[in-house]
Design a protein around this nucleic acid. Structure first.
Lengths: 223, 223
DNA sequence: TATTTATAATAGTATTACTATCATTAAAAA
DNA sequence: TTTTTAATGATAGTAATACTATTATAAATA
């Protein structure tokens, strides 16, 4: 069984809903490939337009700028991640097991879907690791936060915080720990590949390393 | 007693050593003010040139681009931080106390120096929190890492890792924990001010909050 | 005094990050 | 079926960015 999930992305993020047209869908899908290939700094609407055989003007009708497009992609990711967490935790009663599942989700690549219209989840994952902080580490953060564009991140954080609190109700910082889990899993994955001396990774499987590091530290904190 | 510290910054980072001339020193000092004011994305050499009554061309003789200038500033910061850690740990024998001093340093603003030629440490601190990840979260990271431009960060990480290992020699991930301390202190400070719902901060003093969160989590991991 | 070196002043280019206009086409409404 | 509308593509244009190059001048050094 294959299935696709759709999310209602906050309308403040786009000028026109990319889900409402073929070019729109294509530009989001291709932007994931292109941001992965070029990095966010080198990524431009001109290059994306070329890639989808369209024009800059068309893309500008959907997104105010490339920062908004990245925000759109990340909103989709955060929604997807919350969905995945909910899905994978279904019927799992053991509270420790629930946390382990979350850590595994945060530290491993997504399964690639066979559906050609789906986003490439492997690349999406890499974009989240390398580029996600660039959407909030900007001067205008307070201004753009007013439109609730970070709600899916906060919701994901809230959901993980609940599982943390269910495991140990006395722990005082469930939300901070939750964001730390998320951000640290990105950092450690990035560092273990690109700047390994900043980690304790030993050669091989860095997803597995990150998983172990985070699981170890999570249960030491909560037990 | 007032004193100034100088560091030998890796020569691969600049084209001409900004320490070797007055304009050079001025451009680094002013760039800290300007990056703080505008954010790294809006910061340009043109604006900096205007600020120091010089020209773009002059700045380009010192730094290849603004990314390199940021890297220079962060190298200075990492060196300074390692110096501060060394200085503050001098004669402190108690291993727990040594870790507490490090966490305090990572989570609190620097004292502002009265010397007008010094960098503004308060702003520098804010730049490190909001902009530092932008120097390594780039496509060319492997290429630029070859010139050892991240050595001061790795050294700082190594120094903290030593203190961690001295406290608990059995802990398996001293380096990863060390980078996690550093990066998490940035995140939590940034989030507690700008996106507080991603944390457990309660109104007031966010430096104190971050300090408590990190200290709590550090000793739960190591004890 | 001659020579080197750094800087300021100036000019110029390619690219980026947009905005605006208009003709064409496809879809929706009348 | 015709009319209206909405979206797109094609094209043009602008201000700002991220540079590179040239030259005159001033300061430092030999």
């Amino acid at each position: 069984m294959e299935f696709q999930v759709k999310f209602d992305i906050n309308e403040k993020i786009f000028l026109r809903n990319p889900e409402s047209s073929e070019v729109g869908k294509l530009m989001v899908k291709k932007s994931i490939d292109l941001i992965y290939d070029l990095g966010f700094e080198q990524f431009t609407f001109k290059k994306l337009a070329l890639e989808i055989n369209s024009t800059e003007a068309t893309i500008y009708r959907y997104f105010e700028n490339k920062h908004r497009l990245l925000l759109y992609i990340l909103n989709w990711y955060w929604c997807y991640m919350e969905f995945l967490v909910t899905f994978k935790l279904e019927n799992v009663v053991d509270k420790k097991e629930r946390l382990k599942i979350i850590v595994h989700l945060l530290t491993h690549e997504f399964a690639e879907s066979t559906n050609q219209f789906d986003y490439n989840k492997k690349l999406l994952n890499q974009i989240v690791i390398a580029e996600s902080s660039k959407v909030y580490l900007v001067k205008e953060v307070t201004e753009i936060n007013k439109n609730e564009v970070f709600k899916p991140y906060k919701d994901l954080c809230g959901k993980i915080a609940e599982v943390i609190s269910a495991y140990n109700s006395k722990y005082k910082y469930p939300r901070s720990l939750s964001t730390t889990l998320i951000e640290t899993s990105h950092h450690q994955q990035y560092f273990s590949v690109n700047l390994p001396k900043l980690t304790d990774v030993s050669s091989k499987n860095n997803s597995e390393f990150t998983n172990q590091f985070i699981e170890d530290f999570l249960f030491k904190i909560l037990d």
